[in-house]
């Protein structure tokens, strides 16, 4: 497979200069690196600018409801574990509207990869605060500035026991696609939160702002992503310096392993036309 095998002809509806373009390239590169064919990959999304991404790649797509990408993705993966299931979602979709599913699907640990386009603002509804907007950020709705402290998705994910927690930056496509590849390889729920400027509605967290701050964790040879305490510290680092890379990694049994799903026939492959339930009926006689 090469990048052209994943080319979609659907016209792109993002703003010129949007950070989404970098993420799109990184996802495509990761799919090429995964070695899987387009027909064996399912991209699931909710609603928002990020959620349009599946249309711009040639692979299977289920673009569901706002906030509900995770349950749909998990259902599809359980039904057909041969699919590589990746979710593209945004900070509003995943951490706001779908917060409950974010929490419980980390616990559930089905083998899916979740790429969150985190631009710290609502784009499609035109500029309101998102769960990750910094305190003090002024919008048309939060006109005196945001007073609610920002949600820290990486710390939250680590505390919930997520086995793969990473942060990427949309302008470093090579690095980001590497994180997505690692996320896909990881057996269980993997989270890749992606820093991404919104060129239209976020005048604070710009390309320049990020470029001055981000640094790669891999450059620090002493950093051990298996150490939960230092992972918390890195996940919380948000100021003059912002780390990107694999923040936390832990091998743990996936839902498929724990439920025995992996050792049973794939659900969608089951022949269902003549299932004999006479033995069940017998229990009621």
């Amino acid at each position: 497979m090469n990048i052209n095998d994943f080319k979609s002809n659907d016209p792109i509806a993002w703003c010129p200069g949007c950070g989404d373009f970098g993420i799109l390239s990184a996802v495509k590169k990761a799919f090429v690196a995964s070695g899987r064919e387009p027909k064996d990959i399912l991209l699931v999304s909710g609603i928002g600018q990020a959620a349009k991404l599946p249309h711009y790649i040639k692979c299977n797509c289920f673009n569901g409801l706002h906030g509900r990408a995770l349950p749909a993705a998990v259902g599809a993966k359980i039904a057909n574990r041969n699919l590589t299931v990746v979710v593209t979602t945004g900070d509003g979709d995943c951490y706001g509207e779908g917060g409950n599913h974010f929490m419980h699907n980390i616990r559930r640990n089905v083998d899916i990869t979740v790429v969150v386009h985190n631009n710290q603002v609502y784009g499609l509804t035109k500029g309101q605060a998102s769960p990750t907007t910094d305190e003090g950020f002024v919008t048309k709705v939060q006109e005196a500035g945001v007073v609610v402290p920002a949600l820290h998705p990486l710390e939250l994910a680590i505390s919930l026991g997520c086995g793969f927690v990473a942060r990427g930056y949309c302008s470093d496509i090579e690095h980001l696609s590497g994180l997505i590849v690692e996320g896909i390889k990881h057996k269980g729920f993997s989270l890749v939160d992606v820093l991404q400027p919104c060129v239209t509605f976020n005048k604070k967290n710009t390309y320049e702002w990020y470029s001055q701050r981000v640094y790669k964790l891999s450059e620090d040879k002493s950093y051990n992503p298996g150490d939960k305490l230092s992972a918390y510290q890195k996940a919380a680092e948000w100021g003059d310096k912002i780390p990107i890379g694999i923040i936390y990694k832990e091998e743990k049994s996936s839902y498929e392993e724990k439920t025995g799903l992996n050792s049973r026939p794939v659900l969608v492959e089951e022949k269902i036309e003549s299932i004999d339930i006479k033995s069940l009926l017998q229990n009621f006689i």
Binding site: R68, P71, G75, A76, A79, N80, N100, V268
Partner: peptide
């Protein structure tokens, strides 16, 4: 909400 969206995901996949 999760219940119905999971079921729709599973059904989309074919079960």
């Amino acid at each position: 909400i999760a219940a119905i969206n999971m079921a729709i995901g599973a059904s989309f996949a074919g079960s």
